[in-house]
């Protein structure tokens, strides 16, 4: 949500595009849409999710990203909810992980110490909504499965058996943070056919 000084909750895009001074123009708030259809607000280089909170510009923060246009679609959110975490330099230790021939986690998928994981717990599907900045632990409030965020969301406690799937991130030609592809493994709870 963008709030300007005079209390409007939303400023039409053309106000920023046409009326800003030249020196601020480069950092004007914009709504950006990624090629997979998801969109974010970009304010001073930060990606802002709509409507779930502030961007991942500050190291240590965790935000939830949902696909633009699907904020009220529970079916989509059940699969597509993502958490973005920005680390301080040197904190990330995601090794390259393979499951069979599928690449499921790698440092190449992170951009500027930002990493994206599925928000749907691999235990029984609750949202992993708690993040402890100092320990980098992601905790599921339902059954306390705890994931180590700096090493590819590996399980360090609790009943979840698998790390949270990682969303491959990259930067597109315009400098925007985009996902390189879909998740490379099923998100959410285990099931018989999962393999």
């Amino acid at each position: 949500m963008i709030i300007d000084a005079d209390g409007h909750t939303q400023i039409p895009q053309e106000v920023f595009d046409n009326y800003l001074d030249k020196e601020f123009y480069r950092n004007r708030p914009r709504f950006v849409t990624f090629d997979d259809g998801r969109g974010f607000y970009l304010i001073e280089g930060r990606l802002i999710t709509k409507p779930f909170g502030w961007g991942p510009g500050t190291p240590g923060s965790m935000i939830t990203i949902v696909p633009d246009g699907y904020e009220d679609d529970p079916d989509a959110l059940t699969k597509a909810a993502v958490i973005l975490i920005k680390f301080r330099p040197g904190e990330l230790h995601i090794p390259t992980r393979r499951q069979g021939s599928t690449l499921v986690g790698t440092m190449n998928w992170t951009v500027d110490n930002i990493v994206a994981y599925s928000k749907i717990c691999t235990h029984v599907g609750c949202p992993v909504a708690l993040y402890e900045q100092t320990t980098h632990h992601i905790l599921c409030p339902c059954h306390q499965s705890t994931f180590e965020a700096t090493t590819g969301a590996t399980v360090i406690f609790g009943p979840a058996a698998r790390p949270l799937p990682q969303l491959p991130l990259t930067v597109d030609s315009s400098g925007f943070l985009v996902s390189k592809s879909d998740f490379t493994e099923p998100v959410g709870p285990s099931f018989w056919e999962r393999g």
Partner: peptide, 30 residues
């Protein structure tokens, strides 16, 4: 309901507590 939100200290009604506890107590066996 939204699938992306939850609060801590989420508990079911008391008679489901045993199932909730059983889920929480388990180590990750798969």
């Amino acid at each position: 309901y939204t699938p992306v939100a939850i609060s801590s200290a989420s508990q079911p009604d008391f008679y489901m507590g045993i199932l909730e506890g059983a889920l929480r107590i388990m180590p990750a066996w798969e």
